[in-house]
């Protein structure tokens, strides 16, 4: 399913963060949002999830409006979110966090088994409170919880933040698997090596405004844009 943002304007309270931002995430591709801290990448994901009301513009999924829905109905349309910092329900067990993900779209335990097979380490920790997991395991759980929706669009906000290389590789494998299954993935990522390895297209955001959108292959040939918009 194609997710389309058209000239969206949003922000927090009186402070406007995004200005006429337009994007498109297509099925079977990984779109990476790149920009400096505070550019509006996380705000874009929150706006897609309906967590921030739009001042103007529209967000549609295969032509169906998401921005007209109450926020809690957005995930039911097949949009799953892995927030920055994982935002697990820390005092709930691993199994209960998974259960929340399954409840969202009424998925069965067959979905749970399939998701857990992707993250076998969680299988041994089902009765453990989420707050007792390591950072890498918490990221696995946050991703597993989102995958329990069997989403057609997956939003990942800095999933490799603070993780060791083996965990980063696991997350990268998961993203590739999503792409292979035909899901659209929107990835916010600071690690340029991860971006170049995973993304099909890159969208640069600067001060809440959309700038260039380009194929990753072109970015490899001209890394000056990364310096321009990200500063590294």
């Amino acid at each position: 399913m194609t997710l389309r943002l058209e000239a969206i304007n949003t922000g927090y309270g009186q402070v406007q963060i995004l200005y006429d931002l337009s994007l498109e995430a297509r099925p079977g591709e990984v779109l990476c949002l790149l920009g400096r801290n505070g550019a509006g990448k996380t705000t874009t994901l929150k706006a897609i999830m309906g967590l921030l009301p739009l001042r103007s513009g529209s967000i549609t999924l295969d032509g169906q409006s998401l921005s007209d829905l109450p926020a809690h109905q957005v995930p039911g349309q097949g949009v799953a979110y892995v927030p920055q910092g994982r935002r697990l329900f820390t005092e709930l067990t691993v199994a209960e966090n998974i259960e929340i993900g399954l409840m969202t779209r009424g998925k069965s335990h067959r979905t749970r088994d399939r998701v857990l097979s992707m993250f076998p380490r969680l299988q041994d920790r089902l009765d453990q409170p989420a707050e007792t997991l390591s950072g890498g395991e918490q990221q696995m759980l946050a991703t597993a919880r989102a995958l329990c929706l069997e989403p057609s669009v997956l939003l990942l906000d800095e999933p490799t933040e603070g993780l060791q290389p083996s965990m980063i590789a696991l997350i990268a494998d998961t993203v590739r698997a999503m792409r292979t299954e035909g899901q659209a993935v929107i990835l916010v990522e600071q690690r340029i090596d991860s971006v170049l390895a995973l993304a099909d297209r890159v969208a640069f955001i600067e001060n809440g405004r959309g700038r260039e959108v380009m194929d990753t292959a072109d970015l490899r040939d001209d890394p000056s844009l990364v310096r321009k918009y990200v500063g590294i």
Binding site: M49, G50, L51, P70, A71, H72, Q73, V74, P75, G76, Y81, P83, R87, L88, F89, T90, E91, L92, E96, E99, I100, G101, M103, T104, R105, R145
Partner: peptide, 24 residues
Amino acid sequence: TRLGLIMRATQLDRETAVAFGIPV
């Protein structure tokens, strides 16, 4: 119960609860 789980999840993180379809 499922209702209890929903209430506990809402208590722990309202925004994430919404992002997982809970009608807060």
